[in-house]
């Protein structure tokens, strides 16, 4: 259960977050390892999505702070932050009629000015972002005409067009069938391996999270219960503790990552 030793640009310090009611995330501290994929897991309502929203300054801290390169996010201009980290919210909504290319081009907004709405380099980045998710052929299609997987790829392209080192993805595989889930996660891995992007993602499926992440953070009741490599975090004891789930953990044969075989809810 060791904290990662590699320095982190993005950190949470004694972060407390909440909406109208009680605190959802309580005095949580986390250092996001650079150039690695971090997966946040935990039961429904444990605060994992809230934590991601806090890290992405979509939710202001009640106390504590999120810092980027040592500066609290609240002190940085939101436009500057948008050039350093991008956030993909859970089930984002777009107005009907918006095409994939138009959506992706909005990712350039933080770097544009009113007289420079779409430069030649913006164009290159957008086309590259479309190509990275294999969405070039969908460029002129309205989002509502796409399948769930295609739509998710389009949204990821938009965050790629932002050209940020840090990507925060809130349940990027929600509503997708298994094939499309794997497709999205493979893309995330490519972004990390090929382009050195730091990724923090919230995932429901523990086995997939273990398979596609370098670092895992397990949460319960707004706190971090355990973090470390997938093999360190995904254990029968931890699954029992945070999910109340009796399970066997085996090594899957392809990459040797832990794989969960649920046995039933523990009484």
């Amino acid at each position: 259960m060791s904290a990662p030793s590699t320095g982190g640009r993005l950190r949470a310090d004694a972060l407390t977050l909440g909406y109208d009611g009680p605190d959802i995330v309580r005095e949580l501290s986390l250092t996001v390892p650079d150039a690695a994929i971090t997966a946040v897991i935990g039961p429904n309502g444990c605060g994992k999505s809230t934590l991601l929203r806090g890290l992405g300054r979509l939710l202001a801290p009640r106390s504590g702070a999120v810092t980027l390169d040592g500066e609290p996010l609240a002190k940085l201009s939101t436009r500057h932050v948008a050039t350093q980290l991008s956030v993909l919210p859970q089930t984002p909504a777009a107005p009907s009629g918006l095409t994939v290319a138009d959506l992706v081009s909005r990712g350039r907004h933080p770097r544009q000015k009113w007289y420079q709405q779409f430069s030649v380099s913006d164009e290159a980045v957008v086309l590259d972002a479309l190509a990275a998710t294999d969405s070039l052929g969908l460029a002129d299609k309205p989002l509502e005409d796409l399948s769930g997987g295609q739509r998710q790829r389009a949204w990821i392209s938009m965050t790629l067009a932002q050209e940020t080192d840090i990507l925060l993805l809130d349940e990027p595989t929600t509503y997708l069938d298994l094939a499309h889930q794997v497709e999205v996660l493979e893309l995330v891995r490519r972004l990390n391996r090929d382009r050195g992007r730091t990724v923090v993602m919230v995932l429901h499926d523990i086995s997939l999270a273990a398979r596609y992440s370098d670092h895992m953070v397990a949460m319960k009741d707004g706190r971090i219960v355990a973090q470390g490599t997938p093999a360190e975090v995904v254990t029968p004891e931890l699954l029992l503790e945070i999910f109340g789930l009796a399970a066997q953990v085996v090594q899957e044969p392809t990459a040797g990552r832990p794989h969960v075989i649920p046995l039933g809810a523990a009484v």
Partner: peptide, 18 residues
């Protein structure tokens, strides 16, 4: 120009630095 960004929803708009 800004209005189109807000039409993407609050979270996305903030994420894009609006």
């Amino acid at each position: 120009r800004w209005l189109l960004l807000t039409s993407l929803g609050e979270d996305t708009a903030v994420g894009l630095g609006t």
